[in-house]
Write a protein that binds this DNA or RNA. Structure first.
Length: 271
DNA sequence: AGAAAATCCTGGTGGC
DNA sequence: TGCCACCAGGATTTTC
């Protein structure tokens, strides 16, 4: 499940290699979450200036326009000089002077969207409500505290919502809350000042370490160069229901919050 | 009005 | 083997 670390690892794995490339051919397969928004053929001749990221979106900057790429929950990009013939789950491909970029996404919850400017309606719709970037200076402790203070939903669900801070998906929300020793069900506005500070630090710490480990490969995630991640091996609580807590030895509990699994240690995360 | 909760999309997987 | 429930990220819809 690509969350911010997986998207960032993907970005790092091909951004340099594709920079400066010119598009020779482009094609779209089955429909994704959103339509491409232009004729794929019209991308031919454009140049790739760079690859950025906003939340879980990759922003491929072209000399004219942008491609917004989201990996959804099963998407992965591959970039190489040559790639084997495409399979049934390959839904976007771009041949460039420096290699082939291809999106594989079995569940098609992802998207590749072309916009001429980031101010275009479709870009604003997709990016406009995103919260703070957790790995930059934008992730301000005071703004974070103020945002949490006006939410009554469970802290885990506020983290997942993405309108306060982006990129913290299901895995890293559970992990960050464990690291900060906060019960996932605690109402966001009930966090004490020290708890907010611990959570702020834990989110940055967990996401940074996950990027360093190449992300989490639960099923089939790999970077654009084919590398799998290792952070799942360091998970303290995620996916460890009924296994002993690595910190205190008591059993990790799994509950359901808004149709999603949450993992926590009832002893280490008392409230 | 704004926040929270429910629903929907898809295909792989595991249990029976 | 086949069927079915389940899972996941996030936009949209519904409810409060």
């Amino acid at each position: 499940m690509p969350e911010l670390p997986e998207v960032e690892v993907t970005r790092l794995s091909f951004a340099q290699a594709i920079q400066g490339a010119s598009i020779i051919a482009a094609s779209a397969g089955k429909p994704l979450r959103w339509a491409l928004g232009c004729d794929a053929g019209s991308l031919v001749g454009r140049q790739v200036l760079g690859v950025g990221r906003r939340g879980k979106y990759l922003l491929i900057e072209l000399d004219q326009g942008w491609l917004l790429v989201h990996l959804g929950m099963s998407g992965s990009l591959r970039f190489a000089r040559e790639l084997p013939p495409g399979g049934i789950h390959d839904h976007f491909e771009m041949v460039t002077t420096q290699g082939v970029l291809r999106l594989n996404d079995p569940r098609r919850f992802g998207c590749v969207v072309y916009v001429s400017r980031l101010e275009d309606a479709q870009a604003v719709k997709l990016l406009g409500k995103l919260g703070m970037e957790p790995l930059t200076e934008a992730f301000d402790l005071k703004l974070f505290a103020a945002g949490l203070h006006q939410r009554k939903a469970a802290i885990k669900q506020v983290l997942l919502a993405g309108d306060l801070v982006v990129g913290v998906g299901n895995i890293y929300a559970s992990e960050a809350l464990f690291m900060a020793a906060i019960r996932p069900t605690l109402s966001a506005d009930a966090l004490s000042k020290p708890q907010v500070a611990r959570l702020h630090a834990a989110i940055k710490n967990v996401l940074t370490r996950a990027v360093q480990k190449g992300g989490s490969t639960l099923k089939d995630f790999s970077s654009a160069s084919g590398q799998t991640g290792y952070f799942q091996l360091e998970a303290m609580v995620y996916g460890r229901a009924n296994l002993p807590c690595k910190q205190c030895g008591n059993y990790i509990k799994m509950i359901r919050q808004g149709q999603r699994a949450t993992f926590y240690c009832p002893i280490c995360q008392k409230r």
